[in-house]
């Protein structure tokens, strides 16, 4: 669906995107994560040609974006919806006209527009606000209208640029649920740019981590969050303080075992005491997964790992 190879972008001789390669599959929710200034919005805007790139290839729906003429680019853009942090609605137009705008720009007839707008209004649950103006809407409602507008032309891809960053947690949740519904029901591939880890954990299946324009992580959410490497750990701001004596063993609990009492069971069966020095349980993409670090004597480390290997499905590593 989207194929990016060795993409780089310079801005005033400064490299803002540095050798990025990634592939987004049809139908997935993909997250681009990074702190502000990491280049994530720039990367997103390259996908629909709102930003240009200096080197590398970027193919969207089998078209190399860089080589498109203005009208070819506009026609590609009609297959890609986009939503923004500050909603970007036309304040002088009501909800109906805002949602209708992409279709009326593309010259659809009135009946087709009316039918589509009504469908979308019921999808976003704002039928009663059809003739309201943006200033009469809450932030969450504005974003819903913006989502409807982005879906008007039946796009295959939806780009979301910090769409929940200006919203409170409850509204964020409901907008994310709407995006998941759109992904599941309409099969729209969604690419989310965000700096909020909670958003990534909640909806994305895979993520790309960006720092200073460079990729520092790419993969499935479970792997990124549960087996973070050093860079990822720094990125998440999770510097764990582990004891320097004894052996530290990290246990990963995949979603199918995360509710089982493995640790206490092991302590009882091995008749062994150990310290739990770090741990967390997280809900990723509706799966609960956990990670725990225990500290044992050097001598008993073998016993523990042997137990974990043979009796449980837990993945482990000695730190």
């Amino acid at each position: 669906m989207i194929d990016i190879k060795h993409l780089s972008k310079y801005f005033n001789n400064q490299k803002v995107l540095d050798d990025i390669s990634l592939h987004v599959n049809a139908g997935e929710i993909f997250a681009i994560v990074g702190h502000s200034g990491a280049g994530k919005s720039t990367l997103l805007r390259c996908i629909n040609g709102l930003e240009s790139y200096s080197e590398g290839n970027l193919s969207v729906l089998d078209k190399e974006v860089k080589t498109l003429s203005a009208s070819e680019l506009n026609s590609l853009r009609s297959h890609i919806g986009m939503i923004f942090q500050n909603f970007s609605l036309l304040n002088q137009k009501n909800v109906y006209d805002n949602i209708a705008l992409p279709m009326s720009v593309w010259g659809y007839d009135k009946d087709a527009i009316q039918k589509r707008v009504d469908e979308l209004l019921s999808l976003i649950g704002l039928e009663h606000k059809k003739f309201a103006y943006p200033k009469e809407l809450s932030g969450g409602q504005k974003q819903r209208v913006a989502i409807a507008r982005a879906l008007t032309l039946n796009p295959k891809i939806l780009l979301s640029d910090e769409a929940t960053s200006a919203l409170d947690p409850n509204t964020t949740k409901s907008i994310l649920e709407l995006l998941q519904e759109i992904n599941a029901k309409l099969g729209v591939t969604i690419i989310i740019v965000t700096h909020e880890m909670d958003v990534v954990k909640k909806v994305a299946s895979r993520a790309l981590l960006l720092e200073d324009g460079k990729v520092i992580g790419l993969g499935r959410i479970e792997e990124l969050f549960l087996k973070p490497d050093e860079k990822m750990m720094k990125f998440l701001g999770e510097d764990e303080e582990l004891p320097s004596e004894g052996a530290n063993i990290r246990l990963f609990f995949p979603s199918n075992v995360s509710y089982q009492p493995i640790v206490t069971q092991m302590a009882r069966e091995l008749d062994l005491n150990f310290n739990i020095v770090w741990g967390k349980l997280e809900k990723l993409n509706n799966h609960v997964v956990g990670s725990l670090v225990i500290n044992v004597d050097e001598q008993t480390a073998n016993v523990v790992t042997h137990y974990l290997q043979t009796k449980t499905e837990v993945i482990w590593e000695i730190l």
Partner: peptide
């Protein structure tokens, strides 16, 4: 707001439009 123009570009609006 320049982001309104950006949004319009994002669904393929021509310069004249």
């Amino acid at each position: 707001d320049s982001s309104v123009v950006e949004a319009a570009k994002s669904f393929g609006t021509s310069k004249f439009q």
